[in-house]
């Protein structure tokens, strides 16, 4: 989420002071994404420059300066909410690269490499689930943010499980099949930066 649109969203509920915006942002995201004061003020200045918010005109840039959203700001927020984020290109995934490298390296037990990452991920999930167990019912925003993190980590674990199975099957086929010369296939994997 961009801070720009988060601030617009908070201001769409009514005028706020800078400091108030920071506190509410952190409260709404369940403090999962801490924000520093500098980020808040720089972003507010840009929003004001672009005509999306108005300040109450005080010369002082301190925490007592008030802000409100403009009609252009509301239109920008509505458009942003409905614009799908760019998920079309795969992210450069360090874990995928590690597993691809491990498969090729002689003397490396790729299953052990996979398991090391799986254990780490499940441990992280245990910590998030513990947070959810104690706090998610009390705070909708926090519950949603924790769910998102759990589903993201879960997807990575599922990929590791699938990779583990695929590598195992491939090694069994390798062992069982007579060694006929295989057609040379391109093995380069292109991962966009």
């Amino acid at each position: 989420m961009t801070i720009r649109h988060a601030l617009l969203a908070l201001l769409s509920e009514g005028p706020r002071y800078g400091l108030q915006l920071r506190q509410e942002f952190e409260a709404r995201t369940g403090e999962v994404w801490p924000l520093n004061v500098g980020q808040v003020y720089t972003t507010l200045q840009r929003l004001e420059r672009d005509g999306l918010v108005e300040s109450d005109g005080g010369d002082d840039d301190g925490p007592q300066k008030g802000f409100k959203i403009t009609d252009e700001g509301r239109a920008e927020l509505a458009a942003w909410l409905r614009t799908p984020p760019d998920l079309s290109s795969p992210p450069r995934d360090e874990l995928v690269i590690k597993v691809l490298v491990a498969v090729e390296l002689p003397g490396v037990d790729v299953h052990e490499v996979v398991q090391t990452h799986r254990r780490y991920l499940v441990q992280l999930m245990q910590e998030w689930t513990r947070l959810k167990e104690y706090a998610a019912d009390r705070d909708l925003g926090f519950g949603l943010a924790v769910d998102a993190e759990l589903f993201r980590l879960d997807a990575v674990v599922r990929w590791l499980d699938a990779a583990d199975g695929r590598i195992k099957r491939a090694s069994l086929e390798d062992r069982d099949l007579p060694r006929a010369p295989l057609p040379k296939t391109p093995r380069k994997v292109v991962l966009r930066p």
Partner: peptide, 30 residues
């Protein structure tokens, strides 16, 4: 086989080909 379900546990042990190959160490705290 579901990591989300397993993550409710205090400890997760991993079974592979009939052997326990690994387990999570207790978390440092959420």
């Amino acid at each position: 086989h579901d990591a989300q379900l397993a993550s409710w546990a205090d400890r997760v042990v991993f079974l592979r080909d009939g052997r326990i190959v690994d387990q999570t160490v207790p978390a440092s705290g959420p």
